[in-house]
Amino acid sequence: MKILLVDGTIIGTKTSVILEKVKDYIEEISTEHTLEIIRFANYEHQFVDGRPMDQYNDDMQLLVSKFEQADGYIIATPIFQGSIPGVLKNAFDFLHPKTMRYKPVSIVANGGTYQHHLVIENQLKPILDYFRCLVTPNYVYTQTSHFDENNIIVDEDVHNRLRELARVFVQYAEMSKGLCKEPIDTH
């Protein structure tokens, strides 16, 4: 299975650090998956404005293609101003509603305070529910004190929760193999 690990921001490094750890922990559990990290910072983004997909730049078409070809996702996002980054929401807006249907998704996020974890519950989960994803019940939220001055995760509980997230994600990925994936009709 092809798993897309999505670094859903164009600034900062903590989100990427968390995503790399999740990748490591999935690889410890299973070697059956092809894991690819995509960093939104490496793409030239355009706003969704309703035009046909072939009128967007190559980066946006490639991003959509990567989402369509993936069998599962780890979505990583910082929390800014009590919300997910606009670039992540814009990427979701590019996707056909069936793109992520019945595919496993786990969420990791980071923010400056403990309270911002509610953004996952109130914003990100409803978006993923709209896509009818198989969202794992255990997301991991980190905040500033979980990292050292070099943005290395120093909190052992965070490592344990990331290992558990990886374990549950792999089980969801196995479960999803038997579900019928509907073809995407782009006409």
Rank of each mutant, 00 (worst) to 15 (best):
N42M: 08
N42C: 08
N42T: 10
N42S: 14
Y43C: 11
Y43K: 12
Y43W: 12
E44S: 15
E44D: 15
E44V: 15
H45L: 14
H45S: 12
H45M: 15
Q46T: 04
Q46R: 10
Q46M: 13
F47P: 05
F47K: 15
F47C: 10
F47Y: 15
F47T: 11
F47V: 11
F47S: 13
V48Y: 15
D49H: 12
D49N: 15
D49M: 07
D49E: 13
G50M: 14
G50V: 09
G50K: 13
G50C: 11
R51W: 11
R51N: 09
P52N: 12
P52H: 11
P52L: 13
M53S: 13
D54R: 15
D54C: 14
D54F: 13
D54I: 13
Q55F: 11
Q55N: 14
Y56D: 03
Y56T: 01
Y56C: 06
N57D: 07
N57Y: 12
D58I: 08
D58A: 15
D58W: 03
D58V: 10
D58R: 11
D58Y: 03
D59F: 06
M60V: 08
M60C: 07
Q61M: 11
Q61H: 04
Q61C: 05
L62G: 10
L62M: 08
L62P: 01
L62W: 02
L62H: 09
L63T: 02
L63H: 00
L63E: 00
V64L: 09
V64E: 05
V64C: 01
S65C: 06
S65Y: 05
K66R: 14
K66S: 02
F67Q: 01
F67Y: 08
F67N: 02
F67V: 03
E68P: 00
E68V: 07
E68C: 07
A70D: 01
A70T: 01
A70Y: 01
D71W: 00
D71I: 02
G72V: 03
Y73H: 11
Y73K: 12
Y73P: 04
Y73D: 01
I74F: 05
I75E: 00
I75H: 03
I75R: 03
A76T: 05
T77C: 12
P78L: 04
P78G: 04
P78E: 02
P78C: 13
P78A: 10
P78D: 04
I79C: 04
I79A: 04
F80N: 12
Q81I: 11
Q81W: 09
Q81K: 14
G82L: 04
G82T: 03
S83R: 09
I84R: 00
P85I: 04
P85C: 06
L88A: 09
K89D: 07
N90I: 00
N90M: 10
N90E: 07
N90H: 07
N90G: 09
N90S: 10
F92E: 08
D93I: 07
D93P: 06
F94W: 09
F94R: 08
L95Y: 07
L95W: 10
H96I: 05
H96P: 07
H96K: 15
P97Y: 13
P97S: 10
K98E: 11
T99P: 06
M100T: 02
Y102Q: 14
Y102I: 03
K103R: 15
K103T: 01
K103M: 06
